[in-house]
């Protein structure tokens, strides 16, 4: 009935609630799929575990950013105040830890924030303004109240007919093929698909 296409991105299904989506994700994970994702309007507690994710590595970037910030602050203050142009002000030492701490702290925080956000963008590969899932009209609900699961066609376990059956089994609704080309993706506004 459904012919696999070279430009097929994957098979999308909608679920009725966060709980249903979590249950579905557990099943898909158990089936050993690797290239798949769930989409929800808010993060669902327990989903990371259900999808078998390890801890996010964002904190590594934060640590790197923080260390850089501290080093930069130390070098900046020490070099300018104690080496390059030592100047006695208020009878204070050229360099002392006490009055340097505020700037150590602020620069550490600033670069930690930069590192964290950079880490987020690198790990999520954002910004990416377009993506095949947007070709599916129904998917607009993912930022409103829809819960979606998409199996991608590049997964070795993906096989159009059996994957559709699997999605049906686990309670998927409105199962739709998503194509790289927006014209090819069947959208109920334009044509009715039999689910």
């Amino acid at each position: 009935m459904i012919q696999p296409s070279s430009s097929l991105f994957g098979l999308g299904a909608e679920f009725s609630s966060a709980a249903a989506l979590l249950e579905a994700a557990k099943r898909i994970h158990a089936h050993g799929f690797r290239k798949w994702d769930v989409y929800s309007p808010f993060p669902i507690h327990g989903m990371d575990h259900a999808m078998g994710f390890k801890r996010s590595r964002v904190s590594l970037f934060s640590l790197l950013g923080g260390c850089t910030g501290l080093t930069v602050a130390f070098v900046l203050i020490y070099y300018t105040s104690a080496i390059n142009y030592p100047l006695i002000v208020q009878g204070k030492p050229y360099f002392a830890l006490e009055p340097s701490l505020p700037i150590f702290f602020e620069l550490t925080i600033l670069l930690t924030a930069f590192g964290t956000v950079l880490g987020l963008l690198l790990l999520t590969l954002l910004p990416r303004l377009h993506h095949p899932v947007f070709n599916w009209d129904r998917f607009q609900k993912a930022t409103d109240d829809g819960f979606f699961l998409v199996l991608e066609s590049t997964d070795p376990r993906f096989e159009s007919a059996s994957s559709r059956q699997l999605l049906e089994q686990i309670g998927g609704l409105h199962i739709t093929e998503i194509f790289q080309d927006p014209e090819e993706t069947p959208n109920p506004v334009r044509q009715e698909t039999t689910a």
């Binding site: 904190s59 934060s62 964290t116 999520t124 954002l126």
Partner: peptide
């Protein structure tokens, strides 16, 4: 930025939010 509510994004997003709150 092309946000699509993907859980592969949420997982990093939540961690980022936690770290930013922490700092």
């Amino acid at each position: 930025l092309g946000w699509r509510g993907s859980n592969r994004h949420w997982t990093h997003y939540e961690k980022t939010y936690l770290i930013l709150a922490g700092i």
